[in-house]
Design a binder for these strands. Structure first.
Length: 284
DNA sequence: CTTATCCCCTGCCGGC
DNA sequence: TGCCGGCAGGGGATAA
């Protein structure tokens, strides 16, 4: 999926497309999308309701309709597209369509079919375990800084795994974690509790700065995910193994950290010294 | 508590 | 050209 920046862009689009509009018809093309309601229940529930707001929460989009909230997670390949009734039958990756009272149609596309939607009563969003367990939002929530510091103090996990853990901070995924750690000059495999306060602070400050930059950079053109036809890689390190680091020219390296492909610069993000088993080594 | 692995799916890319 | 393995920006379950 999309990580926080892409979800934010989709949420902004939906705000323009949906708010104030009434649902004439909802079609669930792929019922595996819907959890736990049946496709028929979702369709019937949305019929005739009016959208009055769209909120992003970490990597979730919350579409508010009167007394209901439609919660969406785009996972790896989900996206929203605007067209019209006149555009004809929905194209193949379409999983859900919303026909609106102004003649437009909003489609949810998802090639890999990992995306999911839930329907909850307004005000009861936190009864959804997926939302309840989220940490503070990486972009909007000022608690994020403190949450990161606290998690770093008590965890031996790699700092990259911590950044990607949605229970610690919500919204950061594999690409953002790599780019944030590059900006902070911290190696992704560093055990979190080995970080000094200065490094943690650099990471915390890099988080909103990178996210705001990414939203801006990816808002300038049509949002196409990396790996798809026509995609342009705007990131500094991601999927650039062997290319020179934009800061120092050292070839960018790729390894696996926390189970995912990870890109880093050996000069800007020096590997942490392997800690001996007896704890801290004297600096000499 | 942590890590690793697999799984859910489909499509693209590079190598042979 | 065709086939095949590897990989993919998420996250949950399960095993060790």
């Amino acid at each position: 999926m999309p990580e926080l920046p892409e979800v934010e862009i989709h949420a902004r689009n939906l705000r323009r497309w949906l708010v104030g509009r009434r649902v004439e018809q909802c079609q669930v093309v792929d019922s595996s999308l819907v959890v736990p309601e049946t496709a028929g229940e979702l369709q019937a529930a949305l019929q005739g309701r009016r959208f009055d707001g769209v909120i992003r929460r970490a990597k979730y989009v919350l579409c508010c309709l009167d007394d209901l909230t439609l919660v969406v997670h785009l996972r790896m390949t989900g996206r929203f597209v605007l067209d019209s009734y006149a555009a004809g039958p929905a194209t193949r990756p379409t999983r859900l369509t919303l026909l609106l009272d102004n003649g437009t149609r909003v489609r949810f596309e998802d090639r890999r079919r990992f995306g999911r939607v839930w329907l909850v009563p307004a005000g009861k969003e936190t009864e959804l375990s997926e939302l309840r367990s989220l940490g503070p939002d990486a972009l909007l929530d000022l608690d994020g800084h403190g949450a990161l510091e606290k998690a770093c103090r008590v965890s031996r996990r790699s700092v990259k795994a911590l950044l990607m853990d949605q229970h610690v901070i919500g919204g950061i995924g594999n690409i953002c974690a790599a780019e944030i750690l590059f900006r902070a000059g911290v190696h992704p495999a560093t055990p979190a509790s080995d970080l000094d306060a200065c490094s943690v602070s650099r990471i915390a400050r890099a988080i909103p700065r990178f996210l705001e930059w990414a939203i801006e950079a990816q808002s300038r053109k049509e949002l196409i995910y990396l790996g798809e036809k026509g995609a342009e890689n705007v990131f500094s390190l991601y999927r650039r193994a062997g290319e020179p680091c934009p800061a120092c020219g050292t070839p960018i390296r790729r390894t696996v950290v926390a189970g995912r492909g990870t890109y880093w610069c050996a000069t800007c993000q020096p590997e942490p010294a392997a800690a001996p088993t007896d704890g801290r080594r004297s600096a000499g």
